[in-house]
Amino acid sequence: MNGREMIRTENLNKSFGKLHVLKDIDMSVYESEVVCLVGASGSGKSTLLRCLNFLEKKDNGGIFIRGEKVSPDTHNLNHVRQTVGMVFQHFNLFPHKTVLENIIEAPTVVKKFSKTQATEEALELLQKVGLEDKADVYPSKLSGGQKQRVAIARSLAMKPDILLFDEPTSALDPELVGEVLATMKELADEGMTMVVVTHEMGFAREVADWIVYMDDGKIVEKDRPSEFFDHPKEERTIEFLKATMLK
């Protein structure tokens, strides 16, 4: 265990109509940990991630952030979301704003930072993700990998405690995957707490502290990467790994 608990779910359940998507999810992530969520498509990974920053409303169970139970009745979710950032598969950059404007939008509008201060910090973030020369460009002029790095910078601009990634490289051409993973690895090395849904098993093995394998809305196995990949315990995990490695 690294440090303090950052986020935890307790008996989390979620259904869409009759479809029971998350079943009694108990999961915890500690400070500076990287947790990779893996599993077949439709197993509920995105839904779990979206529940963690309240884009999706859980049916029952608890979500604890830094030990505090968070619910829409007792908390302003807009404040909670400032501490739990999210990076999307399709980037979701604001197309009518430049790269710089994308990044300073939330700091100036939500945190009321001055434009000067927000810009200064944004330029630092752009430098960090290697795109300082793209500040005044519109997103449509960027490659997928560049878009995703801007999206990461945009999330970081709110100084979140935890960053959630939902298949951040799945929409990218293969040759652009590496640059995004490198940026994520750098973040992980700096101690960012991260939950990453990914199919990049190489990344998971190298960067993750824990691998969580989900199937059919349940957590089937949670283990250290070396154990998970080299000595998987559950039948379903073994099947999944076989299928994944064959691809």
Partner: peptide, 12 residues
């Protein structure tokens, strides 16, 4: 995704 991006950044 635009709404979700906004909400995930803490915007109402």
């Amino acid at each position: 995704g635009q709404m979700e991006a906004g909400r995930s950044l803490g915007m109402t």
